[in-house]
């Protein structure tokens, strides 16, 4: 099993003071943390990098978090996304889950809760990758792809 230090997290939020402080706290807890301040930057980031988990705000200037989530899942479906918002509605929560969001937390959230969600999200991704790899090794490539895309 991977150590916490191997979990790569991307924080996406337009509240700079919040992101910077949260990033510092998560780094002190042995997570590898990067941060960007809007949805467009998040989408550019994932073209070049492969975070395991993205912690994503909803209401930001430019792209709304739900749109960002939709694009992330199109580009790299395997990335786990946790919504962390100060403005979420029940409709947003439902939409985020429908689009494959891992969880939906409201600000201000407890750091221990956030970390446990990040770890859960990472473990789910890791187990999915291991299962898919086992199927691929046996030659079941279509099945492996479906597992990675959470179709089965």
């Amino acid at each position: 099993m991977k150590k916490k230090k191997d979990i790569k997290v991307l924080l996406v939020d337009d509240e700079k003071a919040f992101v910077d402080t949260l990033a510092q706290r998560l780094s002190m807890r042995e997570l590898i943390v990067d941060k960007v301040y809007d949805g467009e930057q998040a989408l550019s980031y994932i073209q070049k990098m492969d975070p395991d988990v993205i912690v994503l705000d909803l209401k930001m200037p430019g792209l709304h978090g739900i749109e960002v989530l939709r694009e992330i899942k199109k580009i790299k479906h395997e990335i786990q996304v946790i919504i962390l918002t100060g403005h979420g509605t029940d409709k947003d929560e439902e939409e985020a889950k429908k689009l494959g969001g891992f969880d939906f937390l409201r600000k201000p959230a407890d750091i221990d809760l956030l970390i446990s969600k990040i770890k859960e999200a990472f473990m789910e991704k890791f187990e999915r990758a291991m299962t898919a790899a086992a199927f691929a090794e046996e030659g079941y490539f279509e099945q492996a792809q479906k597992i990675m895309k959470k179709e089965e």
Binding site: A17, F18, L22, R25, G86, H87, K107, P108
Partner: peptide, 21 residues
């Protein structure tokens, strides 16, 4: 308004937490 306040509370909470850390 509630969005604004939630953001300020979240920053405050993380800042206090960071001092604790």
């Amino acid at each position: 308004f509630s969005h604004e306040i939630n953001n300020h509370l979240a920053i405050t909470k993380e800042s206090v937490g960071l001092i604790g850390d």
